[in-house]
Amino acid sequence: MISFENVTAIFPRGAGVKDINLRVNSGDFVFIIGPSGAGKSTILRLIYMDIFPDKGKVKVYRYDSSKIKEKEIPLLRRKIGMIFQDFRLLNDRNVYQNVALSLYVSHVKTREIKTRVYEVLNSVGLGHRVHYKPDELSGGEQQRVAIARALVKSPIVLLADEPTGNLDPKVSAELMILLKKINKEGTAIVMATHNYKLIDYIPDARIIQMDKGRIISIS
């Protein structure tokens, strides 16, 4: 489903990733761990084709980084769910509207949007918060809205970039339990984090350890 073949991507200021080979299959839960600047977020950006390799190629679903056209990138991103440390929710609209936005961009019909948004919000435990604005919610709730927004389009993979970075340990634990449940239901998850403790929540996850832009171990 996702593969990296000898991928090197260097930024003008020097950091990036070098000689990356990896594969993510459907249903996998993959941790990418390592210190800051190890290249974890770069791996995720290469997957959603925000940046492109200088060498090698990345394949996601049926899209190949060496062949993809600019107008196909939105189509790829509709297949990928993304959550971030800073949630990236829009504070000028409520929870329902934030989640529904994902479906509007995919040209889904209004009636279906309504059904799917309520379903996904109930599944992340936010059915009672639909009319709240993000800044009226706690950090954990905001991250769950972000997860709902990512899941509502039934992605093939959920990319999580330090999703617990702004959350306290208790809320982080709740979030990991939620992500485990989502993974058990069939969605592959690739999570970049520097918090090694999170691995304990998913014992059967694959772990890719990175440092200075290179993979130093895969288990």
């Binding site: 959603y48 189509l75 790829l76 991103r77 509709r78 929710l89 994902s102 961009v105 389009k153």
Partner: peptide, 16 residues
Amino acid sequence: RELISTLKLIGATNTF
């Protein structure tokens, strides 16, 4: 810019 970058992340086309 926040809205624009979010829209791009969730798969909005340039026209959208």
